[in-house]
Computed example of a mutant assay.
Amino acid sequence: MALAQRTAQQSLRRLAVQTPAFKFTTPAAVAFGNAFVAQRRYAAATTVSALQAHDSILAKQRLNRPVAPHLGIYKPQITWYGSAFNRITGVALSGGMYLFGIGYLVAPALGWHLESSVIAASFAAWPVALKVFTKFAVAMPFVYHSLNGFRHLAWDTASLIENGMVQKTGWAVVGLSVVGALGLAVFV
């Protein structure tokens, strides 16, 4: 919060607790202590051993509290996996982009060759199965994250958000992601 906002907020608080005789004091006078209203704040003094005693009491009470159930007791659902995979793919895609960008920038200084022609020539020398697997591994997170993004955009319009439709669209996104990634890996 900016200094001016804090000053105004403190002034208004001081005005609010004033006696009626000083009701019309300016906020600036209140802020700088010229409002003839004495405010006193007393510090509480306790010993360190008293605080340690309170901590030990709290620690003993925590041992008797019930433990909340962990997620492991619940039945897994497509919404859980979909949400987790959406976050993982988002981090993987953005992290991969940042890592490649940093690598591309420092490549000349380190003697690496990350130019497009070198990468394309290296990739062309790979066996076909390895090319398809690599393209699928790169395409799958992108396709899934994109399709799940459209699903979330539909939810923002308050459509397809009933329990049955959430389940169906979750499985549809998974299926379409696999088919789309395979299509990109094989045909592109």
Rank of each mutant, 00 (worst) to 15 (best):
L3G: 07
W126R: 09
S11I: 05
Y74R: 06
I102N: 01
K75C: 10
S117P: 03
W126C: 04
A45V: 15
V17F: 11
M97G: 08
A50R: 08
G111N: 00
A45W: 14
A8C: 07
A50E: 15
G33W: 06
L114R: 01
V138Q: 00
R41W: 09
A35H: 14
A139C: 03
K60N: 10
P76N: 10
Q39D: 14
P108T: 06
R6Y: 03
Q39K: 06
Y98K: 04
V30C: 10
R62H: 02
S122K: 05
S56A: 13
F133H: 01
M140L: 07
S116W: 08
P66G: 03
L15G: 02
M97E: 07
Y42A: 14
A29V: 09
Q18M: 12
A8Q: 02
Q18H: 14
A21C: 03
T79Y: 03
V37I: 13
A109R: 14
G33Q: 03
A125K: 03
P76Q: 04
A129M: 00
A59D: 14
Q52H: 10
A38D: 15
P76I: 09
W112R: 04
V48K: 11
S11T: 09
Y42D: 13
I88L: 10
G90E: 09
H70N: 15
A125G: 05
A124K: 04
H54V: 14
A43T: 09
T47S: 15
Q18P: 04
S83A: 14
Q5T: 15
A107M: 01
S116E: 06
I78W: 00
A35M: 13
S94T: 11
P108E: 00
T19G: 12
W80M: 13
L99S: 11
V17W: 05
G111Q: 07
Y42S: 13
R14Q: 02
A43M: 09
T26W: 10
A4P: 02
L12Q: 12
R87K: 13
F123C: 03
F24P: 03
L58E: 12
S83L: 08
A124M: 05
Q18S: 04
